[in-house]
Computed example of a mutant assay.
Amino acid sequence: MALVFEHLKTCCESGHLLQVFETLLRSFQITILTAYKSKFCQFIMFYACSLDPESCGKRFVSMLVNTFVSGLNPELR
């Protein structure tokens, strides 16, 4: 997990975090959000959002709100 955090920090410093974040976000939606009892993977998203709260944080919150409000995923309610 520490290696992933280091990679995200390097991506942020080099200006590629948004590209990596989009991949993380898709993976989060498909795999982590619907997983039963995930313990640590969500912290990767939280860390990425902390590196760029204006872009990544707002995008992440928007995705979560849309997912839970839309009603398209009844298993998440």
Rank of each mutant, 00 (worst) to 15 (best):
M1T: 09
M1P: 09
A2E: 15
A2N: 14
L3K: 15
L3Y: 09
L3R: 12
V4T: 15
V4S: 10
V4W: 06
V4A: 14
F5R: 14
E6T: 10
E6M: 10
E6L: 14
E6V: 08
H7P: 00
L8E: 02
L8Y: 09
L8S: 05
T10E: 10
T10S: 11
T10C: 02
C11P: 00
C11V: 10
C11R: 15
C11K: 15
C12G: 01
C12M: 09
E13S: 14
E13G: 06
S14W: 01
S14C: 08
G15L: 13
G15D: 09
G15M: 13
G15F: 12
H16A: 05
H16R: 15
H16W: 11
L17F: 04
L17M: 07
L17S: 04
L18F: 02
L18A: 04
L18S: 08
Q19S: 09
V20N: 01
F21N: 01
F21D: 00
E22W: 01
E22F: 03
T23H: 11
T23R: 13
L24N: 07
L24G: 03
L25W: 03
L25V: 01
L25S: 05
S27H: 15
S27K: 11
S27W: 12
F28V: 02
F28T: 07
Q29N: 06
I30R: 15
I30E: 13
I30D: 05
T31V: 13
I32D: 00
I32H: 02
L33P: 01
L33D: 01
T34Q: 11
T34S: 07
T34E: 11
T34I: 04
Y36Q: 08
S38Y: 11
S38W: 13
K39I: 10
F40W: 14
C41L: 11
Q42I: 15
Q42R: 12
Q42D: 07
Q42M: 10
Q42V: 14
Q42E: 07
F43C: 04
I44V: 15
I44T: 14
F46M: 12
F46V: 14
Y47R: 04
Y47A: 01
Y47W: 07
A48W: 06
A48N: 08
A48P: 05
A48K: 07
A48F: 08
C49G: 04
C49H: 03
C49F: 09
C49L: 03
C49M: 11
S50Q: 13
S50C: 12
L51Q: 04
D52E: 13
P53F: 06
P53M: 01
P53C: 02
P53K: 01
S55T: 13
S55G: 00
C56P: 00
G57K: 05
K58V: 10
K58Y: 03
K58F: 08
F60E: 00
F60K: 06
F60N: 01
V61P: 00
V61K: 08
V61I: 15
S62C: 05
L64A: 12
L64G: 04
L64D: 03
V65N: 09
V65W: 04
V65F: 09
T67D: 01
T67F: 02
F68M: 02
F68A: 00
F68D: 00
S70E: 05
L72F: 06
N73C: 14
P74F: 13
E75R: 07
E75N: 03
L76N: 04
L76A: 05
R77A: 08
